[in-house]
């Protein structure tokens, strides 16, 4: 029994508490921010707000989980936001009410709902293959490869969006069975949240229980070692981009369903929110370290703060400044963990 007592003392010793505080510093700062917001306007702690935050977070969780895979190998997917836009436009253009006046395809009969969603996800997977080949096979840094695909995706999507008779008009009049996916609920639980939960479970299993997932951590942590151990690095990177961009495309589809429309500018900047959420959630930008739970927490906190700042009436320009500070602080704290204390 003496031993366990000693262990307890050890665990709660001063330096240990300091270490825990330091490791989770950014979380404490953000929780503090939430407390401040709640003090300014206690109405924010209502069921309706919570539901709103969860629904807004849902698509962001999918995008951030996709982004996490690329960050795990030390890269980023800058094309994520534009891919959200493309998936939103494509799925919305195929799922308009038959009696809507400005239809994208005026003469097209109604499609089964899963088909346009599947098409959008396949488009995402195709971009994943392209990104994956450029990064894995041609060894272009992910940052540059996806910077290119970001521009190309936007260009392609804008050409599609500008096709007659649509001519760059916002796509509206979406079918109720489609918008229901974004705004409806089964019982008290929003459908879109269920999608997010399923994606989260999927990603947790993928990363923690499959060979592919372990290989992603291996490639991110030490590429050389992975190579020497006979891991197919090209296939691993290709695979993770396919999963990443498919998830992002699903996020785009649900974003269209949630907001009831789409334009070619949908999703702009979402990649930055996703990177921020990952970083706040403890995914290391140097690769090899990161947990699904961290990413989900990161998204929830970030969305809540976003919502809360607007709720208490903070000027939008200041909101940007605050978000920027959070991101830099998060990485600063993260890096300190790995910097040898000298």
């Amino acid at each position: 029994m003496e031993n366990t007592d000693e262990l307890k003392i050890e665990r709660f010793s001063k330096s240990n508490i300091k270490k825990v505080l330091m490791d989770r510093a950014i979380l404490f700062v953000l929780l503090l921010l939430i407390v401040i917001i709640a003090i300014i306007n206690p109405k924010i702690l209502s069921f309706r707000v919570l539901r709103d935050v969860l629904m807004q977070s849902s698509t962001k969780i999918m995008i951030a989980l996709g982004m996490m895979l690329v960050i795990l190998i030390g890269g980023v997917d800058l094309g994520a936001g534009r891919l959200v836009g493309m998936a939103a436009v494509v799925s919305a253009s195929l799922l308009q009410n038959s009696d809507y006046i400005r239809r994208f395809y005026p003469n097209m009969g109604p499609l089964p709902i899963f088909l346009p969603i599947l098409i959008a996800i396949i488009i995402g997977a195709l971009w994943g293959i392209i990104n994956g080949i450029v990064v894995a096979k041609f060894q272009v840094p992910a940052f540059i490869a996806t910077l290119g695909s970001m521009l190309i995706i936007y260009g392609v999507n804008s050409i599609y969006f500008n096709l007659p008779p649509n001519n760059s008009q916002p796509i509206g009049g979406l079918r109720p069975d489609f918008t229901n996916l974004g705004s409806g609920s089964i019982g008290p639980i929003p459908i879109i949240l269920m999608f997010a939960i399923v994606c989260t479970i999927f990603m947790w299993v993928l990363l923690n229980k499959t060979v592919f997932g372990k290989n992603i951590y291996a490639v991110g942590g030490n590429k050389e070692a992975a190579m020497v151990s006979g891991i197919n690095i090209t296939l691993t990177i290709l695979g993770l981009f396919i999963v990443c961009d498919s998830l992002i495309a699903l996020g785009g589809v649900l974003e269209a369903a949630r907001t009831g429309g789409a334009t070619n500018n949908y999703g702009v900047g979402y990649e930055l929110d996703a990177i921020a959420a990952c970083v706040v959630g403890g995914v290391s930008v140097t690769g090899g370290v990161g947990k699904v739970s961290g990413v989900v927490t990161g998204v929830l906190i970030f969305t809540f703060i976003n919502y809360g700042l607007t709720f208490v009436g903070v000027n939008p320009y200041w909101q940007n400044i605050i978000k920027g500070l959070i991101i830099v602080a998060a990485v600063t704290f993260d890096i300190q963990k790995y910097v040898q204390k000298k």
């Binding site: 060979v211 372990k214 951590y217 291996a218 030490n222 070692a225 992975a226 151990s229």
Partner: peptide, 19 residues
């Protein structure tokens, strides 16, 4: 040639994990 962020067992069985 090790991966510092992963466990001993994952490093040992890297590339041929039991399934």
């Amino acid at each position: 040639h090790t991966n510092p962020h992963r466990s001993v067992m994952e490093n040992v069985w890297l590339g041929r994990y039991p399934r």
